[in-house]
Every structure is written in structure tokens, then in C-alpha cells.
Design a protein around this nucleic acid. Sequence first.
DNA 1: ACTCAAGAAAGTGTATGCACTTTTATTGCC
DNA 2: GGCAATAAAAGTGCATACACTTTCTTGAGT
Lengths: 236, 236
Amino acid sequence: MSEQKKQQRGQADRLAVICTALRRAIIERALLPGDRLPEDTLGERFGASRTIARAALLQLSAEGLVELRRNRIAVVAAPSFQDARDIFDIRIALERQVVRHLAGTLTEAQVQELRQLVEAEHEARHGQDGAAIRLATEFHVRLAEMTGKPILIRYVTEICYRAGLSLSAFARPHSSECAVSEHLALIDAIRGGPALNAEDLMEEHLEAVASRALLHKTGTRGRDLMEILAPYSGDG
Amino acid sequence: MSEQKKQQRGQADRLAVICTALRRAIIERALLPGDRLPEDTLGERFGASRTIARAALLQLSAEGLVELRRNRIAVVAAPSFQDARDIFDIRIALERQVVRHLAGTLTEAQVQELRQLVEAEHEARHGQDGAAIRLATEFHVRLAEMTGKPILIRYVTEICYRAGLSLSAFARPHSSECAVSEHLALIDAIRGGPALNAEDLMEEHLEAVASRALLHKTGTRGRDLMEILAPYSGDG
DNA sequence: ACTCAAGAAAGTGTATGCACTTTTATTGCC
DNA sequence: GGCAATAAAAGTGCATACACTTTCTTGAGT
């Protein structure tokens, strides 16, 4: 109708942008448990007002990645050891379901895509630490997405991020959380169909990740949010 | 410091109050899938501004009970049939975990509390329809709470509410979703310990609820929100 | 009657302002 | 110097204002 675009500025859903950026920063361990997330700093970084930043924090708090305390600055959630264990138990239950639905149904294209993801993981292992962890998570998320079940996808994605955060809290710095070979074996088992018991393999894999990682505890505080988030301000 | 209490009005966390009220209204089928939830009406009903109402809707949307569409009025979520099925699959997986952790560990006091809940269910069956459904859900939630695992509690609670909403969308009006006798058998099986295979009993129970209910579809639109919410405005 | 195009009404998206709380810095006292 | 009292700064909680979008209403043209 109108010829000029005027100032229709707000359509890019900055809420989702902030959430995505923060999730990624958390999973890549740029943001660590306990790190402070002031609303105005967040808003400033993403060119939005406190209103949006606040909504993003509420959203992430619902996902268990951020802790919101009344009248206090929000912080990245710091799951307890018991929380971490419980998160992995739930994750196992959910991902078993993914594998069950997927067993014997993967197309060649899907197998190819998954293998490429694992390949990327392998590459990233020698470079940035954060990227490898993110790609390992992405592998599990993509697997869930292939079920085409929106609710399952949502829960698996969320629990994967929470698991990533838990590892961030307890894993030792350079532990190789997700062995590439395990992911490859998983792909083959799922492709093979129910007979190969891919479900059990998935459980073993996740159990291995958990026990490999949940050994000693690290801690960090008081770093500069603006600086940490700089690489995440662009598109997700 | 100051002697007068002044206007320190906002400490009651009205956000939580609204969320609780809406969850309950949804589970009791006072609010049905598709029902509109305008921010200002909601705020007015609970004596808060749109800001709070909006935050509540965002929270409930994260829990899958409310659907938020850009520039459009929020509505109670309307899960698809496939969604409903997936929700029950996830619910089964999670509640199996609850039962596994609980088997053989219930104290007499806990058994007593659960039996009282089932008794209340039984009573409610003859009166208001909504109350019976709510109490049935509460039984499962209390069970989860007895594990003492915060994360598991959170997910089970959420999935129970989503399951309730799904039933609301697809169950025929006066179907007896949760048979009281099944709940009693469940208590006994869990109390008995692992040998009795309470896990499988829970799965059977939930499967029965799902298949009993997911048969035909109902639909409703355009009712008066202020009126529906009147009984939920007080404390939860 | 039937369409459909204004215009009005209802509702959302978001920035901003102000009251209040928490945290941090400062200053005076010992 | 150590340390509490206190003032300044930083930050949250929430209502409100205004631009924009969607939805409803109405009435002219056919």
C-alpha cells in the first residue's frame, strides 16, 4: 500500500535473535555458569531496549539456561551436580525415543548430512574449543529434527542445551565430550534398523559422555559481558 | 528504615499468580484450545498491567500451553493429534523414570498422602468435571515431586499439563480419564519395589488414558474470558 | 442482497520513565 | 589501617505512551 517503507523497524524478532545468541554463547562456553546478564547491557549489545532483553531472559529462564532472581541481576544458570546427573537421565530417555522412531528409516541424504556434521566436528576438534562442543550438540539436535515430531524436537533440543551447560559447569577444560567415532557408530546403528539396538548404543554413548565429564568442578566469575558477546551479536 | 510501608506493592509476584491461574483454568477445561487471551483483559482481571500479562503469556508459551503469534492475540494452544500422541510418549518415558526412582522407597506417610489424593479424586468424580481432571494430574505431579529431583519434577509437571491440554482438545466430554483404581494399583506397585514392575504398570496406565481419550475431536471458540477466569482470580 | 473498501476499534511491539532495591564506593571514626 | 555508616551508582519491577497491525464495522456502489 504505502510506497515508502517508513520505520517498520521491529519485524526481525530481536527476541529470538538474543535468545539464539545467548544459547550459543552458553553452549560454546563463552558464557559460563554464574556470569551476570544485566538487562541493559544485553539490550545495548543487540540494539534493543531492556524490554526485549528482559523477555529474552524470561524465555531462557524457562529453558533452564538462565537463573532469574527477584530484584537481582540475572545469571547464567549453575546446575548442581545432582541436576547434571538428572538432566542426563532425562536426556537418555528422550534420545532413546528419537532413535526408536528413526531406526531403519533414515534416507541416504539424511545419513550423508549426519556424516558431514560429524566430519565438521572432527575438523573443529583441532581448532576452537567451543565450536566442537556446539557441533556435537548439533548432531543430536539434527537427529531429533529428523523425527519430524515438533514436541520431541523441542524437548530434546532444550535438554541438549542444558546438558551442554552442565558439562560447562563440571567437565574439565579440554575433555573430548563427544567422541567422533561414537557418533559414526550411532549413525550406522540407526541406519541398520531396530535389530542393531541403536537405542542401547545411544544410551551407552550418552552415559559415556556424562561419566567422562562429570568428574571435577570448575568455577568462574566477573567477566566482561560486552566483550564475551561481541562475536555473537551478528546473525546466529 | 522508613516507618510507613509506603507503596511497596509489587512483591507478590503477580506473574506467578497469573501463570498458576491460567494453568489451572486450562487443566480444568475452563479455558479450551483456541480461546483468546488478550493481554489487557488478562492484566485487568488480575490487577496488573499488560507488562505482567505479557510476561505470563511468554512463560506459558514456553511451556507449550499458549500459542503466541506475532501481532496477533495469544490463544490457548491447540495441539494436533500427532502432538498429543508425542506428548504421551514423552510423558511415558519421563514417568517411567519417576517410578524407577521411587520404587520401594516410599514412606508410609507418602503412601498415605497419595491415597488421600486418590480419595479426593474419587469424591470429585461425582461433582465438578474439572476438579477430577485436576486432581488426577496432581497425583502424577505429586509422585514426581517425591523423587526430590527438581529438573525431573519440572519436566513431568510440564508434560502432565500439556497432556491435560491434549485431552481437552480430543477427549470426549465426560470420559473418565484416570481411573481411580489404576492409581491405587500404581501406589501399591511402587511401594512394593522393583520386583512388581511398577514401571510397566505406569506405562500401561498412561497408554490406557491416551487410547481411552484420543478418539474424537471437539471444538469451541469465542467465549468470554473475564467470565471464565472469575473463579481463578483469587489465590491458586 | 452482495461485495469490498475505507475508517474505527481493538490489540500488539517496544521504548521510556520513575519508584524501588541491591551493590558499590566513600567517608568519618576509632 | 580497619571498619561500619552512608551516600552514590547500578540495576530491576512495572506502568504507561505511542507507533503499528490486525480485526471489525459500516456504508456506497453494483
